Computed example of a mutant assay.
Amino acid sequence: MTAPRNEQLKAMPDDWRRALAVVAHPDDLEYGCAAAVAGWTDGGREVAYLLATRGEAGIDSLEPSACGPLREREQRASAAVVGVSTVEFLDHRDGVVEYGVPLRRDIAAAIRRHRPELVITLNHRDTWGGVAWNTPDHVAVGRATLDAAADAGNRWIFPELTERGLEPWNGVRWVAVAGSAQPTHAVDATAGLERAVRSLLRHRTYIEALTDEDPETYARSFLTAQTEAAGERFGGTPAVAFELFGR
């Protein structure tokens, strides 16, 4: 059953040290949860980013060969604003990421490398709630991440990873899904919100292609509205909401 929309969100667990965020495109985390990441890194936690694509099909006015490297640079700069120095790319093709064994294997390999307790991803459901349709890349990567969290700890799944020196890691305790229409938990965004705005602004080329609005006005209004909406179910404190799956 879906929880009532006015039910209060619980605080996210904080007894962890390492997280791996796995999403499809540059900017997915900046739209979804950078304010939470800023707070986590401020507290001394390690967060790494893993992107399935370089977002090369995301700007109509730019050829993929030019767009991919540009968006990679913007993503690295964006991550640095919120204290993330490790940004990796899997080089699946933007726009046509397929859910399946190869994607699960790639993500499981990263989980074995980074050995996180918390894995973060983006909405894996068909819609953002109601009739706002999600993209196939988000669905594929989100679902594969949920599966790979278990794959990473099973020595009989992907034994070729063990042969490459990537020993099983069964230490993932939670998968947190940002952008879910069914959130269960939240993180106080107060301290990280300004950096989240600056982090999203590092994707300036993408934003300028997306809207005629002033980029800073656009980024600030989007993230403020998002965190305030979550805060209505988190004691009135601006927040980043997650749907939390325990393992």
Rank of each mutant, 00 (worst) to 15 (best):
T2K: 09
R5Y: 07
N6P: 03
E7K: 08
Q8I: 00
K10Q: 10
A11H: 10
P13T: 09
P13K: 07
D14H: 09
D15S: 11
R17V: 01
R18Y: 01
R18H: 04
A21W: 00
V22R: 03
V23Y: 06
A24H: 11
P26R: 06
P26S: 11
Y31Q: 14
C33V: 12
A35Q: 13
A35R: 10
V37F: 08
G39S: 04
G39C: 07
G43K: 12
G43T: 02
R45V: 05
Y49R: 11
Y49N: 01
L50H: 04
A52Y: 04
A52Q: 04
A52G: 03
R54E: 13
E56V: 08
A57W: 03
I59D: 08
D60A: 14
S61L: 10
E63P: 08
S65Q: 04
S65R: 12
P69A: 05
Q75M: 14
Q75F: 05
A77M: 12
S78Q: 08
A80Q: 15
G83Y: 08
T86A: 15
V87A: 05
E88W: 06
F89L: 13
L90M: 07
D94A: 07
V96D: 05
V101A: 13
V101G: 01
V101P: 00
P102Y: 06
L103N: 02
L103I: 01
R105F: 00
A109E: 12
I111D: 04
I111V: 06
R112P: 00
R113E: 03
H114D: 07
H114S: 09
R115F: 07
E117P: 06
L118F: 02
I120H: 03
L122N: 09
L122C: 11
N123T: 01
T127G: 00
W128L: 12
G130N: 02
T135A: 01
T135F: 00
H138N: 09
V139A: 00
V141W: 00
R143L: 11
L146M: 15
A148D: 06
A149T: 05
A149H: 09
A150F: 15
A150I: 09
N154T: 07
R155H: 01
W156F: 15
I157R: 15
I157P: 00
P159Q: 00
E160V: 04
E160K: 12
T162V: 15
T162D: 10
G165D: 07
W169S: 05
W169D: 14
N170L: 02
G171H: 12
V175F: 11
V177L: 07
A178K: 05
A178L: 14
S180H: 01
A181V: 01
Q182N: 13
A186C: 12
V187W: 11
A189P: 05
T190Q: 11
L193K: 09
R195M: 05
A196W: 12
L201W: 14
H203V: 12
R204N: 02
R204Q: 14
T205V: 15
A209T: 08
T211D: 10
T211V: 15
D212Y: 08
E213V: 13
D214K: 13
P215E: 14
T217L: 15
S221H: 14
T224Q: 14
A225F: 03
A225N: 04
T227C: 15
E228V: 10
G231K: 06
F234Q: 03
G235M: 15
G235W: 08
T237E: 10
L244W: 02
F245H: 14
F245D: 01
R247T: 02
